[in-house]
């Protein structure tokens, strides 16, 4: 009995506690990201944004959540019920499970697996299922068209993202996310791999269906795309999943290019600030870029979106993989 406790139950309890310690701040961050988005865009458009509920509108996310929670869940008659209910769950769960491998500081990670980068890439490539299942199960033209568009878009941009990740991995020599960060102690990869950083950031915009690539939610033509038939908490799960994905992609950008939890300079006073705070600050900066882009650029046309993904980013990132490999070998910088 004591053995059962020491081998299974106690480690299990510790893992559950760690999961809670990751998920609670994450969900809070998701809630306040929605507020931050409205506030930032309002500031850029010389408005005030939400300022009625609570002090400076700080209780607005709570009010929004409550509103969605008490609404009625409507399941269309012609819908495929199981898949219809499954789709938002898939989206939300996939947005959360990816956080298992994100390192917040050296050793501060739930699962320090050897193939962390591949795990994240696999999880993000499965995000398309939530969308495509929702579109098909709704049994509605608009939802279906929106889902098809979205799926094609997400699959296209994954490929250039994959090549960007390969470039970073060439410079690291490992698929472990902690090692990826530790390889950036001298210089962040955003400096030597600046073009890849830009490509990766734009691809994450497309991958998370954010503006200017928010065609799946083109309210002007598809009355909001794949989630048009969803209401109440099923809709809220899509919404939460989308914002959790934004934070996840920002975290991935931070880890791959902006040095993760490392301080920008390796001396005091920068090193006095603990790693997780640097990590959060960098994620917030990338998230601000997401919002800034949304407030600045108009929506892409669909054929231009596909052209950018397949004819510009794909050859460019492929070329850069070769260039990086040649440079690493020629100058003897290949990591051991």
């Amino acid at each position: 009995m004591a053995e059962l406790w020491s081998i299974y139950l106690w480690p299990g309890a510790i893992i559950v506690a760690k999961i809670v310690a990751i998920l609670v701040p994450l969900l809070l961050a998701v809630a306040y990201l929605t507020l931050a988005e409205r506030k930032v865009i309002a500031a850029m458009q010389l408005r005030k944004g939400p300022n009625v509920v609570g002090w400076f509108g700080l209780l607005q996310p709570v009010a929004d959540g409550l509103k969605l929670f008490v609404k009625e869940t409507v399941i269309p008659t012609g819908a495929n019920k199981v898949v219809f209910v499954l789709a938002p769950m898939v989206t939300f769960v996939l947005a959360l499970v990816a956080w298992a491998v994100i390192p917040f500081d050296e050793g501060m990670v739930l699962a320090d697996i050897n193939v962390g980068v591949l795990y994240l890439f696999a999880i993000s490539s499965m995000g398309v299922y939530g969308v495509i299942m929702a579109g098909w199960a709704s049994n509605s033209k608009y939802a279906f068209l929106g889902a098809l568009r979205s799926a094609a878009q997400m699959v296209s941009y994954e490929i250039s993202m994959g090549f960007v990740i390969v470039t970073v991995l060439l410079c690291v020599g490992s698929l472990n996310l902690t090692k990826v960060v530790m390889a950036q102690q001298n210089v962040w990869f955003a400096v030597p791999l600046l073009p890849m950083f830009v490509i990766f950031f734009v691809s994450t915009l497309a991958e998370t269906n954010r503006s200017p690539f928010d065609l799946p939610e083109a309210e002007a033509e598809l009355v909001s795309g794949y989630n048009v038939e969803y209401s109440s908490m099923t809709f809220a799960l899509f919404f939460l999943g989308e914002y959790a994905n934004m934070i996840l992609m920002s975290a991935l950008t931070t880890i791959l290019f902006l040095g993760g939890w490392l301080a920008p300079f390796g001396f005091a006073p920068f090193t006095w600030v603990p790693g997780p705070i640097w990590f959060a600050a960098k994620i917030s900066f990338v998230l601000f870029l997401f919002l800034w882009v949304r407030a600045t650029f108009p929506r892409y046309r669909y054929d231009q979106l596909m052209r950018l993904g397949w004819k510009v980013f794909l050859p460019l990132s492929l070329l850069w993989v070769v260039v990086t490999a040649i440079a690493l070998v020629a100058f003897g910088w290949v990591p051991q």
Partner: peptide, 8 residues
Amino acid sequence: LVIVYVGA
């Protein structure tokens, strides 16, 4: 397997 078969 997951990336290639499930994801694509």
